[in-house]
Design a protein around this nucleic acid. Structure first.
Length: 875
RNA sequence: GGGUUCUUAGCUCAGCUGGUUCAGAGCACCUGCCUUACAAGCAGGGGGUCGGGGGUUCGAAUCCCUCAGGACCCA
């Protein structure tokens, strides 16, 4: 006996192992097949599966499984990303717990710890993906730090350097004092923070009784001030320009300058200029040739240039200096002030603008094809609303700071001679050779040259991902890259559209001369019920593995998908997953029903079953057509919904009820076989969405060979659709529904057989469906009449139906119903007539639209006539 | 402040280039059912002047303007 409820845990591991054993997911270039390729957005090695991954990878799996079943050479490449900052932060924290300080380790020792960490935790997320059913080609698993991908990054750096696209520069960058590294603009998250706007008096050098008041949120940086700037149009201060003021506490004289940059309305209209600690001030300083005083250490503490509060953390110093200023009489007032402050995405530390020596990649030339080919839809963003944002970014693109002051990552292949000369080379040995040749320094040894300490931004490796996973940088003509590249679809989150997707497109055009993927499907962000993004720190995310345990992988997959159109956020609700589980159970029980039937060759096929089979064939083909169309539009959620309704409503509620034999009665072989065939097709159709349960059932529908699997069965293709038949069944459904409604309102048991009379001009419309009508509505006697008869009545389209049950007729209620229906239909007819009597409508509207209106008119008139007759009969 | 985008049933969302009874789906809710596959179920039902206002049109949830509110990106 098959269990009454579907138990996913028992079968999921079994089938995943079966799939792996038969290597259904592994792919080799096959010239006879069309390739279908997806590269996974590589999750961090340090990460664990979260709800975003679940959604994202479910969608990828659906696409790749469908392609595989369609006979394409499907290849889904999995892998992980080394995630410099995130991983290094975790390793540093881990070492700290052990009492080890990163500073006390050599680079090599530290990196050894990183690898240990990677080996220990790096595979977790990939294991978790298996639980979800992900059909990745695991043999192709890649890691951005493995030798071949590492080398690809180095090659690309060298190549771009030699082309002149990479340069070293002194720039204002975003500094994370906690991680002690540079961040890209995208890694800085602006957050609104309550600050104090402090008003400080700077006495004039020439007249000590007079003072200028400036407003600042960063009083601890006044020691790095190099000027006070006012707007030249500001009449309050014009006479002071050119004079000098003294910085409070340290009494250094600085000039008062004028620049239009200063907003007169903000604060007092006087701006303290601190080029080392503010990006705008830096530009202003350059323009006015001002010196730069940097008073912060790497870790955010004040250095000796501050003269006071040396060694204090910037935030401590901010508090302390206020007191000092107050005591010195320089503090005028303090206001509450809200403003956006940049925070590190990884460490949440307040980001410090900082001047430093960094490596940059020029983006102007490289970005051009990446912009053009998205705008002209060579690369399609789904949904397309992201195109505008994308264009806005690309048209304002700035050079990319690619160096990070970390150890875990691809070390910049730049070497310095003692005089600071830079040589970019693959190794120290090559650098030495180059130095000897290019500079005629034959006495030079490896000891005389030093490699750059910094590593490259993580995105500088992941931007090569679609190429480097196929080794396409180092061996641009190898079979894999030629076959699988460009890939087909990329599924990722909109938050990294600029970070990552754009850069992959750039690299694709630069290194393969074409796009890396044809379609970019942007998923939404998974949020909790309160609309907050799910995150570990908020603790508002359910553990996906526990969800899978509770609801089954298929249930979770469908649950995630039920409400997630492309690009729209998904407000997650466990109810959705429950619905997914219930769907599994529904399918399971349908299967139980069918498998429980006894088949007897002695039983002839009832006409009703024959009808039902013909109908469902058309219905299935119609749904297939819809689903395939939805797939081409990447409307995956809608495709799933279409499948859901097809199975639940059409197959289970309608078809199975139509063909179901009586209790403990056998079924005829024709209907049985047709039903198994439907089930087979339904399972194949559903497989990409729900891989496990469909495999379990598909394997049990019929005897299967030892290496067969629904994974590699053909995806169903739509056949012919009999729309006349579909129309007839719609009428049937309406009649059945009306009779059931009648039972409900009259409190009649479904077991009570009812006599039915149909008053119609076209009995032939109903005759073929009589068997089904009897079965579905439990109708006993059925007759056609041309005049009204006694009984409760209802209308379907313009035919009238009577159920003659003595004593059950409520004349008043029926009259009321008819009256309502009459009013509605008359109103409807009225609106139709309004259109038709409008000359301009008849002239301007398309012919078929007008024709439809005329049809509506005829239908409504017929119906009104029927209602009137019925009312007349009731008196 | 600039840009993008959204507002449809209690909730989450579909409604493509304006034209079928177009106002939909799922969930939630209400009523009745332990009917022999499934109570994780079955049958039925109520619920929205499509954010407000204005305009274009024979016709607007759909196009345009405007106001209100939200989201995101950038400064």
């Amino acid at each position: 006996m098959i269990s009454k409820t579907y138990s996913p845990q028992e079968i999921e591991d079994k089938w995943y192992a079966y799939w792996m054993e038969h290597r259904y997911f592994s792919s080799q270039p096959n010239p006879d097949k069309e390739p279908y390729t997806i590269v996974i957005p590589p999750p961090n090695v340090t990460g664990v599966l979260h709800m975003g991954h679940m959604l994202n990878n479910t969608i990828q799996d659906i696409l790749v499984r469908k392609a595989r079943m369609e006979g394409k050479e499907a290849c889904w490449v999995p892998g992980t990303d080394h995630a410099s900052i995130a991983t290094e932060a975790k390793v540093v924290a881990m070492l700290k717990e052990k009492g080890i300080n990163k500073k006390d380790l050599s680079r090599e020792e530290f990196i050894t710890y990183c690898w240990e960490w990677t080996h220990k935790y790096g595979g977790i997320i990939l294991q978790q993906l298996r639980k979800l059913g992900a059909s990745c080609d695991w043999d192709r698993t890649r890691f951005t730090m493995e030798p071949s991908l590492y080398d690809a990054v180095i090659e690309v750096f060298i190549d771009l350097y030699e082309k002149g696209d990479i340069y070293r520069g002194h720039r204002m960058v975003n500094w994370d004092p906690q991680a002690r590294t540079t961040l890209s603009d995208e890694e800085v998250i602006a957050k609104e923070v309550n600050q104090k706007l402090v008003y400080l008096k700077y006495p004039l050098v020439d007249s000590e009784s007079e003072a200028l008041t400036i407003a600042t949120t960063r009083p601890e940086t006044i020691m790095a001030d190099v000027a006070i700037c006012v707007n030249p149009a500001d009449e309050r201060y014009q006479h002071l320009v050119g004079q000098q003021v003294l910085i409070p506490l340290i009494n250094r004289a600085i000039p008062i300058i004028a620049d239009e940059y200063v907003e007169m309305e903000f604060g007092t209209g006087c701006l303290k200029v601190t080029p080392a600690h503010d990006t705008n001030d830096y530009e202003l300083g350059k323009k006015h040739n001002l010196p730069i005083i940097d008073l912060l250490n790497e870790d955010g503490t004040l250095n000796e240039k501050a003269q006071i509060l040396v060694g204090e953390d910037r935030f401590v110093a901010r508090k302390k200096i206020l007191k000092l200023l107050e005591e010195a009489g320089n503090l005028e007032k303090v206001e509450e002030y809200k403003s956006n402050v940049g925070h590190s995405e990884r460490t949440n530390a307040v980001v410090e603008p900082r001047l430093s020596e960094q490596w940059f990649l020029r983006m102007e030339r490289l970005g051009k094809p990446a912009l053009d080919n998205v705008l002209n839809d060579t690369v399609q963003l789904i949904p397309p609303k992201f195109k505008n944002t994308y264009r806005h970014w690309m048209e304002n693109i700035r050079d990319w700071n690619i160096s990070r002051q970390l150890w875990w990552g691809h070390r910049i292949p730049a070497y310095y001679l003692q005089d600071g000369t830079v040589i970019v080379a693959r190794s120290k040995r090559e650098a030495l050779r180059k130095a000897q040749h290019e500079y005629q320094l034959f006495a030079l040894t490896e000891e005389d040259i030093r490699q750059d300490d910094d590593v490259l931004d993580t995105w500088f490796s992941s931007w090569l991902w679609p190429i480097s996973v196929f080794n396409g940088i180092k061996e641009p003509d190898n079979d894999d890259i030629k076959y699988y590249y460009p890939t087909n679809d990329l599924v990722t989150a909109p938050e990294i559209l600029f970070f990552w997707v754009m850069r992959m497109i750039v690299a694709g055009y630069e290194y393969r001369g074409t796009y890396p993927f044809k379609n970019v499907y942007l998923t939404g962000i998974v949020r909790d019920k309160l609309g907050r993004k799910m995150s570990k720190s908020l603790g508002n995310s359910p553990d996906p593995l526990i969800l899978i345990e509770q609801y089954g992988a298929d249930g979770v997959r469908t649950g995630m998908l039920f409400s997630s159109p492309a690009g729209n956020d998904l407000p997650f609700d466990e109810k959705l997953v429950e619905q997914g589980r219930n769907f599994c159970n529904k399918i399971w029980n349908a299967f139980r029903l069918v498998k429980g039937w006894e088949v007897s060759a002695q039983v002839p096929q009832p006409g009703s079953s024959q009808q039902a089979v013909a109908w469902f064939e058309s219905r299935l083909n119609l749904a297939l057509t819809e689903v395939l169309d939805l797939f081409t539009k990447f409307r995956i959620s809608d495709a799933l919904n279409a499948v859901y309704k097809l199975i639940w409503d059409d197959f289970c509620s309608n078809y199975l009820e139509m063909i179901k034999p009586g209790y403990e009665q056998p079924i005829d072989p024709g209907t049985y076989e047709a039903t198994l065939d439907f089930f087979d097709r339904l399972m194949r159709l559903t497989h990409p969405f729900m891989p496990f349960i469909t495999e379990e059932i598909w394997q049990n529908i019929r005897e299967r060979g030892t290496s067969e699997s629904v994974c590699v069965a053909d995806y169903p293709r739509p056949g012919s659709i009999d729309s006349t038949l579909l129309g007839q069944f719609e009428v049937l459904a309406e009649v059945v529904s009306a009779i059931r409604n009648l039972r409900n309102t009259k409190g009649l048991s479904p077991k009570l057989e009812l006599p039915l009379a149909i008053k119609t001009d076209a009995p032939e419309q109903y005759q073929p469906l009589e068997g089904l009508l009897r079965k579905l509505a439990n109708v006993a006697a059925l007759e056609y009449v041309s005049e009204q008869v006694e009984g409760m009545s209802f209308l379907v389209r313009s035919d009238e139906f009577f159920i003659n049950l003595a004593g059950e007729i409520d004349v008043e209620a029926e009259r009321e119903n008819l009256q309502k229906e009459l009013e509605y239909t008359e109103g409807f007819l009225n609106s139709v007539m309004k259109k038709l009597s409008n000359e301009r409508f008849v002239q301007n509207a398309k012919g078929d639209v007008v024709e439809k209106e005329r049809q509506k008119q005829a239908d409504a008139e017929a119906k009104i006539a029927t209602i009137r007759e019925a009312l007349a009969r009731l008196g």
